[in-house]
Design a protein around this nucleic acid. Sequence first.
RNA 1: AGGGGUGUAGCCAAGUGGUAAGGCACUGGAUUUUGAUUCCAGCAUUCGUAGGUUCAAGUCCUGCCACCCCUGCCA
Length: 566
Amino acid sequence: MKLANGIDLDNITPENELEEEIIADFKAGKTKEVITRCPPEPSGYWHIAHAKAWTIDFETAKKFGGKTYLRMDDTNPLKEEGEFSDSYMQDLAWLGYKPDKLIFASEAYFDDIYKIAEQMIMEGKAYVCELTADEVSATRGTLTEPGKESPYRNRTPEENLRLFRDMRDGKFEDGKATLRAKIDMAHPNMNMRDPVMYRVLRAKHYKLGNKWCIYPMYDFAHPLEDALEGVTYSLCSKEFLDHRPLYDWFIENGWKKPFAPKQREFSRLTIENVIIGKRYLKQLVNEGYVNGWDDPRFPTLVGVRRRGYTAKAIKDFVKSVGWGNVLEVTVPYSALEYYVREDLNAIATRTMVVLDPLKVVITNYGDETEEFEIENNPNNEAAGKHKSIFSKEIYIEKEDFSLNPPPKYNRLVEGGIVRLKGAYIIKCNKVVLDKNGEVDHLECEYIPNSKSGNDTSGIKCKGTIHFVSAKNCFEVTIRNFKNLVKDEYKNPAKALSEGTPISEILEPNSLTETTALAENFLKNAKIEDKFQFMRKGYYCVDKDSTKDHLIFNLTISLKDGFKISK
RNA sequence: AGGGGUGUAGCCAAGUGGUAAGGCACUGGAUUUUGAUUCCAGCAUUCGUAGGUUCAAGUCCUGCCACCCCUGCCA
């Protein structure tokens, strides 16, 4: 079956129940177009779990040639701020998504929602209740007992309409009245026990100022917003499953038109050892544990981006988790790291950077320099090559030389040989110690006919190490990150909610700065450029870098298969 | 007078009556001028549990058990 937009339904393989349902809806003529919405409350920065939701919203629509709207769900003036829509647009752009529309629910729909409320009042489906918040709570009943009906429940529609307009016109103080849906105080689903539709709230709305002193509740506003803008599938996380009957009730009793949006629910994503709750993230920022919302150790989208994670990695990761069966799926951090490495391996330019330098003097080499080439990406010939330099004085990684090598140590030892990546094989003839007995530098000889590419020496070398030439390197700052949360706190949210102090669950020294020697090739690296420092890890240029001084963030280390055998 | 959701390996997850996909992690081994990548192999005689129906059950039925969510004038 071919859709109006040219998509052939028969070519689509459904990957979850929703997609099966969408196909069935198309075939039954119930759906003409897939329209989803991405409905953030503009009150904080997005993190990886949001990326899962938005990926589902956008990818589902895209699969069927549909549309996705970005809709600010701004029905609570107490919590929302105006700053966020730009940052959300940027986050979405980074993820590679462009909403078909940007909507501010307050601006676009408050009038319509208000009218629907009046209409429901006249139909006897809503009433003005003057119980206080505490009284409402006390009469709601419990999980096992029915609630009590409000004494205001049976007012006439006319009286309710007059009172509701009084609410709107500011004749009630905050908290003195609500508009409630007349459903069933004995309903086994707590959400159906005459839920509040509107509350009186005098607060300056970031968008509408003081235009309103009553604000619709999420449960009432959301389904109507969906309906008003033609959203066909309204996707949210599973904690809203219990709200679905209410959603449908408002569609049936408030919206009343034949077109009905559907709410469907996916599982929420959490990652082991990651703090994701907005409240705690805010605390970390405010108390100075991190350097802002885009700290590279943060799970915010701006944070992981600054860390060097790619949008592709994030999307592949959240897609790998899938739609989900349970309310919340928890995956180990390594699951995310896999996708980060996978993408970086494909795109990162290979370079040589010595993080912890040890000087090596090539005693049988003159003062000249010599060029050689390094493949930018051995897995992708099209990435090309870049030139590097070999000379008499070079630096290697301290850990690539050992006076007391463990078993199966492939690197340089006293009297041993090693291949310098892209250049020559060298032999260590002499270890020069400083006055403290530490290794000061090495004196090596190079094997002249062993140059990479035309090695005629016939020497087999079991190890290859990276290096930089003293004549071809410059100092850069490296920011090394460890997970913010100690490894033993797999579920930091639980620990925190049980009263563990935030300082206790945090890894001390999760940020350290070091200086490294980078090959000159890196001199014109730009912010966010991603590199592999060969044999070490993936790094990207931090935004704190200046023209004269580059700062690299450790995105993620390479997997290290070398195990010091027991 | 509670309601709703979920149980398949350490983790995520396919599976829709025909004999347990795939991925992560892990373990071997091959290739490698990155101890990376890549490749190959191993990793559930069994699907929360006890019965039942059936030639055949992870799938259907019944009982039981476990875990998660719901008592905001938050979203």
